[in-house]
Amino acid sequence: MAGAVLFSEMTPSPDWEGEFNEWYDNEHIPLRMTVPGFTGAQRYKRNDRDYLAVYDMTGTDVLQTPAYVEIKDNPTAMTARMLGSVGGFTRYIGTEIGFQSNVALDDAIPAPVLYSVLFSVPGDRLGDFDAWYDQDHLPALLENPDWLACRRFSLEVAHPQPFNRLALHYLATDEALDSPAREKARATPGRARLAAEPWFQADYKVFYLHGERFSAR
C-alpha cells in the first residue's frame, strides 16, 4: 500500500452536484491515476454534499513530478470551473508513520465508514503524542473487531488549518464510535494527561464510502 496520502474535501452546490460527481469520477480522479506514483483513490461523503477523496501515493514527492505538475498546472475548462466554484476545500498531504489493524489493509480499505482525525501538535510534544496514539489509544480502539484499521500520517502540506497529524480509521460500522472500546480509549490516564494541554483540540469527521475504488492505470 502507498506510503503517502492526499486528503481533499470539496462541497459542490446542489444545483450542479450531479455534474460535479460526473467530473470527479470521469475526469478528475482518472487523470491522476495516470500519474506514476498514484496507486489508488477512494471517494467518501458526509452530510448532504460534503465529499472527500483520499488518494494513495508511493510518496509525497509524486506531487512534484513533471507528470503531476503538467496536469495540475494545465487544468481542463471543466476542472477550472469546478475548482473555482466548490466550497469547503481542504488539502492535506502526508507521509505514513503508522499502521495498526485487525485485518489486512486491503480488506480495511473498502470499509463503509472512514473516521478522520486531524491534530495540530506542538513540535516538542510530537514524541509524547505519537507514543500515546500508537501504544495506548489504538490498542484500546482495536479491541473492537469493527475497528478494522488505522493509518497515521505526518502532514507536510495542510490547508486551510495547520494540522500536522492525520489518522484515518476504517470502521465496519459507525456504531464502533459508541462502543465500549472507544470509551476505554478515551478514558486512559495517558489521554487525560494530553487532553489537559491547551493544544489538544482535534477535527473529527465521519465519512461514508461513495462509489468504487479507483486504481492506477
Rank of each mutant, 00 (worst) to 15 (best):
A2D: 02
A4C: 00
F7D: 03
E9D: 07
T11Q: 08
E17I: 11
E17D: 15
G18S: 14
E19P: 01
N21M: 13
Y24G: 06
Y24Q: 02
D25K: 10
D25Y: 08
H28S: 06
L31E: 09
T34I: 11
N47K: 14
D48R: 11
D50T: 04
A53R: 02
D61S: 14
A67H: 08
I71W: 00
D73H: 11
D73F: 05
T76Q: 05
T76G: 09
G84V: 06
G87D: 07
F89I: 09
R91H: 08
Y92A: 01
Y92R: 07
G94A: 06
G94H: 01
E96I: 12
E96F: 04
I97E: 11
V103Y: 06
L105D: 10
A108I: 04
P110A: 12
A111T: 04
V113M: 06
L114F: 02
G127D: 14
G127C: 09
D130K: 14
D134R: 15
N144C: 14
P145K: 10
R152Y: 08
F153Q: 04
A172C: 07
T173Q: 02
A176R: 01
L177Q: 05
D178E: 15
P180N: 11
R182S: 12
K184R: 15
K184G: 10
P189S: 10
G190H: 05
R191N: 09
E197W: 03
W199S: 04
F200P: 00
Q201P: 00
V206M: 05
F207S: 02
L209G: 07
S215E: 12
R217L: 14
